[in-house]
């Protein structure tokens, strides 16, 4: 098939950037979206223009590196699919496809379609862990975890940190990302000792990184390639409220618990 691509080009963080239009010929439906871009970049070599910079690595939907806004949808039109796993059979001959980077204040553009998502690392660094120094662990079966609870924790832990939730959110909020980690650890016995401290620290950091607030649009859930549900945000909000009140020594918090 033959496609017209409108691609965001930006030489660097300080550049204003803008759209450029390219033609892609001989696109096979079996190509992945990124393979289609590889071919466009090979063609650009023959011109004076530099190849389009875009982030990608594993190309099997798990590393969370690829991050393209395709026709206004993070990772494109296919449900529960990262950009690298999106195949050209989802498009039609003659289509015009608009490709942009993630748009969010907390994800500054570095070049073309590449953004800086280190704010996510800082949220994890603030509290997204269990303090379990190497060597201090007891036997793995000493603490039992009910299967359904463990499965729920795994659902949340499946987050790949791609940032689609932020890109989809009209507020640029990182609630779904933050909630996924908070809830993963809050559902497990190992996460209990730091449960309150964790949620407070992570939400505080999220705010400090200039992510927006959550007004429950639900766009994040729709965009998430790993189907992390908005239920996690409810669970995190409950933990956050309890932790906040407890922080003030409020008795009501005990009742909530």
């Amino acid at each position: 098939m033959r496609l017209t691509l409108k691609v965001w080009r930006q030489a660097g963080p300080a550049d204003r950037g803008g759209f450029r239009t390219y033609q892609a010929h001989d696109v096979s439906e079996h190509m992945s979206f990124l393979e289609m871009l590889d071919v466009v970049n090979e063609d650009l070599l023959a011109t004076a223009e530099e190849p389009i910079a875009f982030d990608h690595d594993c190309r099997e939907g798990i590393c969370g590196t690829c991050a393209l806004m395709i026709n206004g949808m993070p990772h494109g039109p296919k449900h529960a699919t990262t950009t690298c796993q999106l195949h050209m059979r989802s498009f039609h001959d003659g289509d015009t496809i608009t490709i942009e980077p993630w748009r969010a204040r907390a994800f500054p553009v570095l070049r073309d379609l590449v953004v800086d998502r280190s704010s996510f690392d800082r949220i994890i660094s603030a509290g997204g862990f269990v303090t379990a120094p190497t060597g201090s662990a007891q036997d793995a079966n000493a603490i039992l975890v009910p299967k359904d609870q463990s499965d729920l924790a795994m659902d949340a832990a499946a987050c790949i940190g791609c940032g689609a939730c932020v890109a989809a959110c009209p507020n640029g909020s990182a609630m779904l990302f933050t909630a996924a980690k908070v809830v993963h650890l809050a559902l497990l016995p190992q996460g209990q000792p730091e449960r309150s401290r964790r949620v407070l620290a992570m939400v505080h950091q999220m705010d400090a990184e200039a992510f927006g607030g959550c007004t429950l649009f639900g766009e994040c859930e729709a965009a998430c390639p790993k189907e992390i549900t908005i239920e996690n945000i409810m669970r995190m909000n409950r933990d956050l409220m309890r932790a906040t009140l407890r922080d003030r020594g409020d008795r009501e918090a005990e009742a909530l618990a």
Binding site: V130, A132, S136, A137, H184, G191
Partner: peptide, 22 residues
């Protein structure tokens, strides 16, 4: 064996049986 202990302590959600064992 220590690796599994360490990872469980970190909160790695390994698959479990209904009895709660790994």
């Amino acid at each position: 064996a220590n690796i599994i202990d360490q990872c469980v302590a970190q909160g790695v959600p390994f698959a479990r049986e209904y009895g709660g064992m790994l």
